[in-house]
Design a protein around this nucleic acid. Structure first.
Lengths: 218, 218
DNA sequence: ATAGTGAATAATTTATTGATTGTTCAATTT
DNA sequence: AAATTGAACAATCAATAAATTATTCACTAT
């Protein structure tokens, strides 16, 4: 790691410390420069602007969050079904505790997203990839009956929206949410494991379209 | 309708007009009094405070929104399944257009909810009752296999969270959302229509509790 | 008594100013 | 040359003053 890279890391560390302690708005470039024993101007040789430091921190945070979820994939389980449930519940618990114990992390993420909407889109996509892997496995093993894995992944992810950063939507307790999610998963699991056909009559409700981006989405 | 009630209605009408046009904060009691040809002080003989006028308007709005959804129940359909899909799609479209065409309505609702959290809880409960009625019907007719209708209603409602006021969560277009919801409903429908047992292994994941408010919730 | 007023007051919002901060860049050091 | 500085400038924020507004209430009219 080059001399330059080390200094960049030092800025990130100093920023992480101050952002999580005092918040993004209350942290000044001058303070970060002080922490790194350099001048304010010099910070700009490493980052285009203050917001870009936040983006970098949020990006790493998001990556390590997915890693936490992915870690669940390593544990040996009886079935794809159990794997899927574990991942969904891990998501609920991880994001719930994040908001409870480190609220500044959400604040930072919201600031980043409001400036860089693409950031959220990519975070969600990364998360979906974990879901998709499980669905693929389940399909391959014959445990799940899915004719369009990509679309079903998106559906599953959408149906569990309420259980990511749940405090944004409700003031239920974690155990209330856990019990509720258990019921949601019961219905979904029966849907994934059922061999019977249940093509949406929705096709009579929504107008069809030629190019359907979702069906090939990753 | 008494003289007094008529005046109360006049205040509500004037407020609705101004709130939807200029927004709640920019509307003054003095203006409403002017509109109704009365003094500011007299408004307070009809409402305890400014916020209570907003509460009354939001309450009526919420009731008529549920009525729109309930109207779908009147149409003759082939199955409970179709009924359920129509209601869910109606919800998506109604709330989507609401935010698109009358953004002040959301603003008002958010102001009311931030002051009266109970308001939101009751609105959601009313909406769930429509879902519950359909699930009951489907169960009675043998079309759905549901062992706990109350819990499944809550699960269904939670799983479709993203499709109520969808613009709060995403900037997808209405047709993207419609296609996505169709896939969500495909999975859920298979879950509801499947006779096979799929008790959650979640019970091994979440700790059980003696008093489970949800299982008897309406 | 009931309905209504409008000036008085308390609470909130808006405007303004001064101070702080993000960012740039010509000059300096390594 | 590459790295760094720090003063200059523009943008943003905080504090406070000014104005507006919500609410009350003693009083008047019906």
């Amino acid at each position: 790691m080059s001399e330059s890279d080390l200094k960049r890391e030092k800025i990130i560390d100093a920023a992480r410390e101050r952002f999580s302690h005092y918040g993004y708005p209350k942290t000044t470039i001058a303070e970060l420069a002080d922490d790194c024993a350099m001048s304010p101007g010099n910070i700009y040789r490493f980052f285009k602007g203050k917001i870009d430091i936040a983006v970098e921190i949020a990006r790493r945070e998001a990556l390590s969050a997915v890693e936490v979820i992915e870690a669940v994939l390593e544990c040996p389980v009886r079935s794809s079904r159990q794997r899927l449930e574990e991942v969904v519940f891990a998501d609920l618990r991880y994001t719930f505790h994040l908001l409870e114990n480190r609220p500044k992390t959400l604040e930072l993420a919201q600031i980043v997203v409001s400036d860089r909407p693409q950031f959220q889109i990519e975070s969600l996509r990364r998360e979906r990839r974990v879901f998709q892997r499980i669905l693929h496995e389940g399909q391959a093993s014959g445990e799940f009956y899915i004719d369009n894995v990509a679309a079903t992944t998106i559906a599953l992810h959408a149906a569990t929206t309420k259980y990511r950063y749940a405090q944004l939507f409700t003031n239920q307790t974690l155990s209330e949410l856990e019990r509720e999610l258990a019921h949601v998963m019961t219905v979904i699991m029966r849907g994934l494991m059922s061999a019977q056909d249940a093509k949406p009559i929705a096709e009579t409700i929504i107008p069809p379209e030629d190019t359907n981006a979702m069906d090939s989405a990753s």
